[in-house]
Computed example of a mutant assay.
Amino acid sequence: MSRVTQRASELALDETTVTALRAALKTTADEVVQAIIDEVPSYANALSGSMGGTIRRAVRTALGHYLDLASGNATGGDAGDAAYELGRGEVRDGRSMDALLSAYRVGARVAWRCLAAGAVPAGLPAAEVAKFAELTFAYIDELSAASAAGHADELAARGRAHERRLEHLAREILAGVSPDVLLASAQRAGWQPPDSLTAVLLPAAQARPAYRALDPSTLVLDDLPDATGVLLVPDADRSHLLRRLTDRTAVVGPARPWTRASASYARAVRARSLSSDIRDTEDHLPELVLSADADAFADLRARALAPLRTLPVATARRLEETLRAWLLHQGRRDEVAAALFVHPQTVRYRMSQLRELFPDLASPHRVLELTLAVGLRAS
């Protein structure tokens, strides 16, 4: 406490004055505590019972250190450490720094009144009273600063710990761990589970900025592989969410029950692997279905369209386009012709060729196979 030490070096109370002030320490501490109870509502109940006794002893200790300083016998470091821990404790007790600073202001006023009332009759020269006052208020300022530092450090530590617990929960959700494990992690993180979560993939650098515009209960990770970030948005209004992400390079998965949100994340990842142009996975369900098992889809296409492979490439391509249009338009010849920009008679001719290549073209199973086989290119 350099400023306090400097003030103390300018004032050396004589032994008679110090003895008189020490004799009144308990009374002074009691008056300080009572004034805080009366004037600072946050402490009205906190200073009763055993807690009140602890605080009274702490006030007496601080006043004792102060008198050691004033008499040139101490540095005040212990009192500063105690004030720092007091600030940390206020966070644990759920009180703001404003309440503690108010208590310090009240305590400084009452302590000075009591100390002055004891020092002057003990013979403190009038010229020294001003220095005594300056030392008193400088000492309280130093204690306030130490408590503020402790309060801020505790808040920061708690914030970091809370953020780590939320990130741990997000990783468990993406990994698809059991609901019981997820619920326990949510409770440890102090996170209220929603009904659903919607996964949003976006570049890692955009994750935190985007998060600030969303529900504060959103879970966020920005350190996934390939510089990817993910947001897990609770109970999202989908259209509102998409509008919020208009200026972001985002892929929005489906809403899923929060314990199964890994499925939303998996779909968003797969959609991004299909195309960099996909934003809303709900708009691309056919592609996602048909690409769910790429090998199976390739086998299906090869088998279903095998008859076309016997033809010249150009012919096969024209007939596949015609087959696709015929399936999409449910055999309505004029609509097929319009889609292909050809005459209806051309459609009739090509369809007669296709019926020779696919004799069971009217079979529901064959129609299903062919629809799937040509569907991805059609969507």
Rank of each mutant, 00 (worst) to 15 (best):
G118E: 09
S147T: 11
A127C: 08
G72T: 05
A8K: 07
A8P: 06
L86P: 02
A145Y: 11
R88W: 10
G64N: 05
T61S: 11
R60F: 00
T16E: 09
R113C: 03
V120M: 09
L11F: 04
N45S: 15
D78L: 13
V59G: 01
C114G: 08
L135C: 06
E15G: 06
L13A: 03
I55N: 01
R92A: 15
L47N: 05
R57N: 07
S9A: 15
G72H: 04
D38N: 15
A146I: 02
G123Y: 01
A119N: 04
R105M: 10
S147G: 13
A133T: 12
A46H: 10
L13Q: 02
R3T: 14
Y139C: 08
L100V: 08
R22A: 07
T54A: 12
F132A: 03
S50N: 07
V106K: 00
S102L: 11
R60W: 00
D68C: 12
I37Q: 02
A35K: 03
A99R: 01
E10H: 15
L25A: 08
A70Q: 00
G107P: 05
R7G: 08
G80N: 11
T17R: 00
A103R: 00
G64H: 02
N73S: 12
L67T: 03
A99I: 04
K26A: 12
